[in-house]
């Protein structure tokens, strides 16, 4: 597997896309009309620093007005990209690999959260898509499966989830294989 240079995830509330995030300093963009324009230079000529107002660890585009306030609140409480992802999961959002060159999936078919015992371990959706973990994301179309889109939220679940994906011909079969691997769908 080739890791992406910059991780790029789509965040869902239920089946609805609410945010697209990149693990890179950038801007926070709302669905509301344009924010104030050119923020001016970063300093004196020759400065190569980021533009004024650049977020230190994330570039993000919101996609659901009703969720924006909560998403920003969680971001403000976060200390890093990974901390933000963890807070999003705790708040009930789900995370899928984003392949923007294929167009955003604004709605996913109803998915299932996966639990390893009582711990949230991942999620899967019955539509073609990419397998990813939160820390390592495949490049391009690597690890794309017809049977499901899937994310391992815990590294301990990654191998089991990937093996079940590779062996399954249908979404129901995937859930059966995951259950046999002690990953129960809620």
């Amino acid at each position: 597997m080739t890791d992406r240079a910059v991780r790029h995830f789509a965040i869902y509330a239920g089946d609805r896309l609410v945010l697209v995030v990149r693990d890179n300093p950038g801007t926070l963009r709302s669905t509301a009309g344009p924010a104030p324009g050119d923020p001016g230079p970063p300093g004196r000529p020759g400065t190569n620093g980021p533009p004024p107002g650049t977020h230190p660890f994330i570039d993000a585009q919101a996609h659901d007005p009703a969720a924006e306030s909560r998403l920003r609140e969680l971001l403000d409480a976060s200390s890093s990209f990974d901390d933000y992802l963890a807070r999003l999961l705790d708040a009930g959002f789900d995370i899928a690999s984003c392949r923007p060159e294929r167009g955003l999936e604004y709605e996913l078919p109803s998915g299932r959260r996966l639990y390893d015992g009582t711990e949230l371990a991942g999620a899967c959706w019955p539509t073609r898509g990419q397998f990813t973990t939160l820390l390592r994301q495949p490049a391009g179309d690597e690890l794309a499966f017809d049977v499901a889109t899937a994310t391992a939220y815990r590294d301990a679940a990654a191998t089991r989830l990937l093996e079940a994906l590779a062996a399954s011909g249908t979404f129901d079969e995937l859930l059966e294989r995951l259950a046999a691997a002690r990953l129960k769908a809620a």
Partner: peptide
């Protein structure tokens, strides 16, 4: 937009503006 998320949200856009002050938007469920 003011009270979503059980009242925890401060009614702001993702880039920190007040939704109450935004004139025109789309796709609110």
């Amino acid at each position: 937009l003011l009270t979503k998320d059980e009242g925890k949200g401060p009614g702001k856009t993702f880039d920190g503006r007040q939704w109450a002050h935004v004139r025109g938007f789309s796709d609110v469920t």
